Computed example of a mutant assay.
Amino acid sequence: MSPGDEQGYTETGQTRTRLPGGDPYGGAPRRTGRSSSRGLITVVGVVVLLIAAIAFANRGDGSSTDGSADKGDRPKAASTAASGTKPVDTKSAGIASGFAHTEQGAQSAAANYAVALGSAEMFNSGWRHQIVSLVYAPDVAAAKQSDMDSAYSSEKFLANIGLAKDGSAPKGQTFVSRVIPVGTKVTSSGTDTMAVEVWYTSLFGLSGEGSTNPVTESWYTTTYELKWMNNDWKVTDFQQKDGPVPVGRDQTASTADDMTKAVEEYGGFTYAR
């Protein structure tokens, strides 16, 4: 099991229209009178139709004549905008809790749970047990905790990522494991169940002089199956896949010292949809 297993939502355009060039009569003698008027009316009519088609194509509301937008096939123009609703006003062990019994509440819960399950604290048994008990539904928490203990306590796994047997980083180095949600999307919903996809980027590795596992960036999408119980959303299962992955810019990697300072000085967020 890799860390990714737990680390695991208005476009504008320009349309150029070119009318046929040259002599519209193909070099033949021009007609006069009513034929000329008809030709002018035809050209004007084509231009009007083209303008109408361009205006329709450039509409930003995502509507269509067949009502496909209403079916959820494509996001609305404001689907990436913040809802403006405060996600929660309570926390348990630093993890947001008490989400609303709505789709927005489920998306906020999934984003915050992804951050907790992808954190460096998951590599400490005490913190891991607390996170699992708070995030997962009671009827699956025990099984999930056992599976995670086996994976996160594997000496081979810990050695591969440069950590000691107890999950601590080597002296002089800082272990980095962070999940940064980019967007969320509800893929299925019921009265007390919800499936939410969380698209996020992940930072993982060791910062510090002599690190053989420098901090790298990865992209994943995890689908969380959520259930409403005890006045909150809880995870019952999840599935993870790679990407979507953007094209990386040609930027110079920061020094180990700069990366360590950033991790220590920049705190996380409570995420809301």
Rank of each mutant, 00 (worst) to 15 (best):
G33L: 05
S64I: 00
V88P: 02
P87H: 04
R59S: 14
T32A: 12
A81E: 14
E103I: 01
G39D: 13
G45Y: 09
G84H: 10
H101K: 15
P29I: 05
P87K: 07
R31T: 11
T90M: 07
S68G: 10
T65I: 10
L49I: 12
A53G: 11
K76T: 11
S64Y: 02
D70Q: 14
V43C: 02
T32S: 14
T85H: 04
P29G: 10
S36W: 08
T42H: 03
A106K: 03
K86H: 02
S83R: 08
G60R: 14
T32I: 11
G39L: 10
K76H: 08
V43G: 02
R31S: 11
S83Y: 04
I51R: 11
K86P: 00
G72Y: 08
V88K: 03
I95N: 01
A78Q: 07
S35T: 11
A57F: 04
S92D: 10
D61Q: 05
S79C: 09
Q104H: 11
R31V: 08
G33P: 02
A52Q: 12
N58T: 13
A57M: 07
A69C: 02
G62S: 14
S36E: 14
A69R: 06
S36I: 00
G39M: 08
A96Y: 03
G105A: 02
D70G: 15
G27L: 08
V48G: 01
L40F: 04
S35A: 15
I95R: 02
S37N: 11
P87I: 05
L50R: 05
L49R: 15
T102H: 05
